[in-house]
Design a binder for these strands. Structure first.
Length: 374
DNA sequence: CATTCGTGGGC
DNA sequence: TGCCCAAGAAT
């Protein structure tokens, strides 16, 4: 009897060799053709549209993306129209979707596609991977869906599905694991229709092979699934959890001048919420008087003399992936001072304010401000 | 390689 | 309520 290899990579290869790959492909792709959801980005295979959808879908749920995708393509129907847009408007269409560097990278990349490739999204892994924001997953997704190329598109769904089918126990939270799954997809790839094959793996993960309580009895490929055969599907994939979030206490001010214009600040071009607008704020040590800190801050940093209400009108708790903000927001009135010499500050009317892109945390402040008297 | 980068939904 | 997440990429 032949001894099975201890080389992990070869072990997976042996599992694949024992599979009826053709039956697996047919069962999977046929299921996809019958059961796939009717999603707005599946109306055609236009590379620009596929690309936009894939970037939006990074770490973001389908139901969340749908309205953003529709608005985005209504506003920017062609890659040229998007490339020509200013950054303010592209951030506004992305407002509330999160991970804002995605849209800034997409914008940079789109401009490059227009100027360097005449508006046609490159169709080789080499070229498309050079574009900002296009990593291994997005490259594979666009190449397979838009151009029918047999390139793996390994996302969280694919890793979960294949970890179960092939009983792969590598920690999918580790970056190095993705390569393992790409190699498996290379072996399993349905060359007659790479687009459907890649999408089928993801769709199966989204609809059937879910993180918890997978619907194995409805699964079109359960007879190919090693985890199901052993009843260990709930134990897979192996995924280590990340460390907990840190907390920051912040005080913010909605400051109006004598014309009732509101002071806002543009965040730095790098880091958290880059280039979005916000109400002036600073990190503080809790239990100190926020209104005094703000008054001092406006004076020393902006040379503004202002009266700040002692009582905060709202407290916003906002949770990021790796950070939690507790924002005590105060109302204030400018007595003297201006924004001369400060490039990031601006006084705007309420109407102008609502045309600019704010992070959700500061949208919450604005909502509470407008409702404060009632 | 580990960390950073958003948000809203599910349990 | 607190945690996990959801079609990842950049640094």
């Amino acid at each position: 009897m032949k001894k099975s290899s201890n080389n992990p990579k070869q072990k997976i290869q042996e599992k694949i060799d024992r599979m009826d790959i053709e039956a697996f492909q047919n069962d999977l792709v046929q299921w996809f053709q019958e059961e796939q959801r009717n999603l707005p980005w599946r109306k055609d295979n236009d590379a620009y549209r596929v690309w936009v959808s894939e970037v939006m879908l990074q770490q973001t749920r389908v139901d969340t993306v749908i309205p953003y995708y529709n608005r985005f393509l209504e506003k920017f129907p062609t890659i040229e129209s998007f490339a020509d847009a200013d950054e303010e408007s592209i951030l506004k269409v992305w407002e509330g979707l999160g991970y804002y560097s995605r849209v800034r990278n997409l914008h940079t990349a789109a401009k490059e596609v227009v100027s360097k490739y005449g508006g046609r999204v490159p169709d080789t892994k080499e070229e498309i991977s050079k574009l900002k924001g296009v990593g291994p997953y997005t490259a594979g997704a666009v190449l397979s869906i838009a151009y029918g190329k047999p390139v793996p598109a390994v996302d969280g769904n694919v890793m979960r599905v294949l970890s179960r089918i092939l009983l792969i126990t590598d920690d999918i939270a580790k970056p190095a694991s993705r390569k393992i799954f790409e190699e498996a997809v290379e072996e399993l790839m349905y060359h007659d229709h790479p687009s459907h094959f890649n999408q089928a793996l993801m769709e199966l993960g989204a609809l059937i092979c879910t993180p918890s309580s997978p619907s194995c009895l409805l699964c079109p490929v359960r007879e190919h699934c090693q985890a199901f055969a052993k009843g260990v599907q709930e134990q897979l994939p192996v995924k280590t959890r990340k460390k907990s979030t840190r907390h920051e206490d912040i005080v913010a001010v909605v400051l109006k001048d004598e014309e009732d214009k509101i002071l806002i600040n543009k965040r730095p071009e790098k880091g958290l919420l880059a280039n979005l607008w916000e109400f002036p704020n600073l990190k503080v040590v809790p239990l100190l008087d926020g209104w005094e800190i703000l008054q001092d801050f406006l004076s020393t940093e902006y040379s503004m003399d202002a009266v700040i209400e002692q009582e905060d009108f709202t407290v916003v708790q906002h949770v990021f992936t790796h950070l939690t903000w507790k924002i005590n927001a105060h109302e204030g009135r400018l007595k003297s001072g201006n924004i001369d010499g400060n490039e990031t500050l601006k006084f705007v009317t309420e109407e102008e304010l609502e045309e600019l892109a704010f992070p959700v945390s500061h949208q919450k402040i604005w909502q509470a401000y407008k409702e404060r008297v009632q």
